[in-house]
């Protein structure tokens, strides 16, 4: 099986022409060069100030706000003709919006795509970090709905901006402590706030807290794009990323008593698939590429021969 699907469309002259490699009159990777430059400058400042949200002149994209326009603008600004792109949503390559975004870049940039995490140079994601460790040189682009970790506690941008300026994150600690008083736990299971390089409180986009530890000291560059909210932020490789906690209530990730029904993995994030109306369910890896690789290597779970269910076409 050829892991990299090269779907380069015709008309990619490549040199000299306006918008070489683009599609149907649009520039390569859709965005015009001026917009890319503006976004590139924002990305560089974001990398230089890890975890800080850089405002940028987000453009209206041909996909709706809230559906990945921030991630798409970041990817469109960094991607080149030699890149290999992987797009996942909920950890899966074949969720409808991941398919739609991958198609957008194949169409506008003629780039190669892959489902194999290790083959990709750029991975655009919504809600998950792949299970397998990312490599130096890879770039993970997150789609971010609400970039401001303090937004649920303070609705006003003018106030949250001051708090970041002063590194005054008291309201977040109070909120987490109130959780503990009420439930005995911190009741945040996703978009669990992190402190980047000991300075900025940062939203890890709504990944499950299971994935938070992967952000720490990651060899790959992490870029975050929030299109509707018009913010870009970044975490350089090998940067300290800590999930907020208390000495007597240390940070913990989700665990399952089940293993993946398909590949038998006991260390991955599992999705629950409802099998009938009597409460029977099956647990499978959310990272579909990781699960498929494990099965290809001979790993089997309790329902290892079950065919994964699909979408009604």
């Amino acid at each position: 099986m050829n892991a990299i699907e090269n779907t380069n469309h015709g008309g990619n002259g490549g040199h000299g022409g306006n918008g070489a490699g683009g599609h149907g009159g649009y520039n390569f990777a859709y965005l015009d060069e001026q917009s890319k430059r503006m976004i590139r400058r924002a990305i560089l400042k974001a990398v230089a100030i890890p975890g800080y949200q850089v405002p940028f002149g987000s453009r209206e994209m041909p996909l709706p706000y809230g559906w990945g326009t921030g991630g798409i603008q970041v990817t469109a600004s960094i991607i080149g003709r030699d890149d290999v792109l992987k797009v996942i949503d909920q950890g899966a390559d074949d969720t409808t919006n991941a398919v739609s975004i991958r198609k957008f870049f194949v169409r506008t940039a003629g780039i190669a795509t892959t489902e194999e995490t290790g083959q990709a140079t750029i991975i655009q994601t919504r809600h998950r970090i792949p299970e397998q460790s990312l490599l130096p040189g890879q770039i993970l682009v997150y789609q971010v709905p609400i970039p401001e970790p303090l937004r649920w506690l303070e609705a006003r941008e003018t106030e949250t901006r001051k708090m970041h300026g002063l590194a005054d994150y008291g309201i977040m600690h109070v909120k987490l402590y109130e959780d503990i008083a009420k439930y005995g736990h911190i009741e945040t299971s996703y978009d669990y706030p992190v402190r980047v390089n000991g300075r900025y409180l940062t939203a890890p986009s709504p990944i499950p807290k299971f994935d938070n530890p992967k952000m720490n000291d990651m060899p790959a560059l992490q870029l975050f794009g929030a299109g509707r909210e018009k913010r870009i932020y970044a975490i350089p490789p090998h940067t300290r990323v800590e999930s907020l906690d208390f000495d007597d209530h240390p940070f913990e990730v989700q665990t399952w008593s089940e293993v993946c029904a398909l590949c038998g993995a006991d260390d991955t994030y599992l999705d629950e698939v409802i099998m009938d109306d009597r409460g029977t369910s099956m647990f499978v890896c959310s990272d579909t590429a990781h699960c498929a690789e494990r099965r290809a290597a001979g790993h089997r779970g309790p329902d290892g021969d079950a065919a994964p269910t699909g979408l009604v076409p």
């Binding site: 809230g66 909920q90 996703y190 978009d191 709504p206 499950p208 299971f210 665990t255 399952w256 629950e272």
Partner: peptide, 23 residues
Amino acid sequence: EAQGFVQHLKLPHYVDFQGELVL
């Protein structure tokens, strides 16, 4: 902006929902 973000709730959110179920 508003229509996109309201309607993005149609997109799958099962990973985060699983986290809430576990909790």
